[in-house]
Nucleic acid binder design. Structure first.
Lengths: 133, 133
DNA sequence: CCGGATCCAACAGGATACTG
DNA sequence: CAGTATCCTGTTGGATCCGG
């Protein structure tokens, strides 16, 4: 790297990180806007274990409202990440699962879970230390 | 059919995904509460390229307010993910960089960026398709 | 240049009630 | 069971002014 520092700010620090509409950072931003909300990733993680019924998801997540569960599922379905399968019996039954692409995202999420397991102790300590200063 | 509620649902469907306080899902939730906000991951990504000054970050992100930049940086510093280095010159100068642990998270973020590059076209198409129905 | 403090708008999201 | 509709709140985060 070190593409020089021609800017007049004259620093020896790697400079640019320019952000244009097609820069990776902007793409990340898009992804975050999609799955960076409160529930999407959680649902992706659960569905990574296999398909679930609506009510199963509700119980599994514990804390989510019907409203947000439905909204989030719809959003994920819209983005082609989860599938929605209706079985018109009585009572009706709806199963949600991952699409192939959804599974790839689920893997990324798994990676993040892993990271959190490994570092949450560290973070906890860092916080305590910071707060006590 | 009799609704056959012998088991908690679903014959051939992978079951439980129970969520307890120490379950991975809860840990993921913690991580998301930390870095799942609007700017944290973006900043981690930028700092992954090397340390940056406050004003560099401001210009790089383009859209962030001073308030949120400072708040987010403080939060990341508190969690031991970024370092803050003050050089008391005039005018003062402050550099931000990643801690070792911060770098590991930055790598995860990079992985996410990668995912988004590969799939945002797919998502875009999926959306258009969904919306046109 | 860095960033704290205050005010305020927007929106995410919970609670509840109702439908097919 | 699987949603939808309405209401209402807390929080997020932008704008702005000020101070070191």
């Amino acid at each position: 790297m070190t593409e020089d520092s021609t800017s007049n700010s004259a620093t020896h620090i790697a400079v640019p990180s320019q952000v244009g509409p097609d820069q990776p950072l902007c793409q990340l931003r898009e992804v975050l806007d999609r799955v960076g909300d409160k529930w999407s990733v959680l649902i992706m993680a659960i569905l990574g274990n296999g398909p679930h019924r609506y009510s199963d998801l509700r119980r599994a997540i514990d804390g989510i409202s019907q409203r947000m569960l439905t909204l989030t599922l719809r959003s994920l379905e819209r983005d082609g990440l989860v599938t929605r399968t209706v079985t018109p019996t009585t009572p009706p039954r709806v199963d949600y699962g991952l699409t192939p692409v959804g599974q790839t995202l689920s893997k990324e999420v798994g990676s993040l879970i892993n990271w959190s397991e490994q570092h949450r102790e560290y973070i906890s300590v860092a916080r305590a230390s910071y707060d006590s200063e």
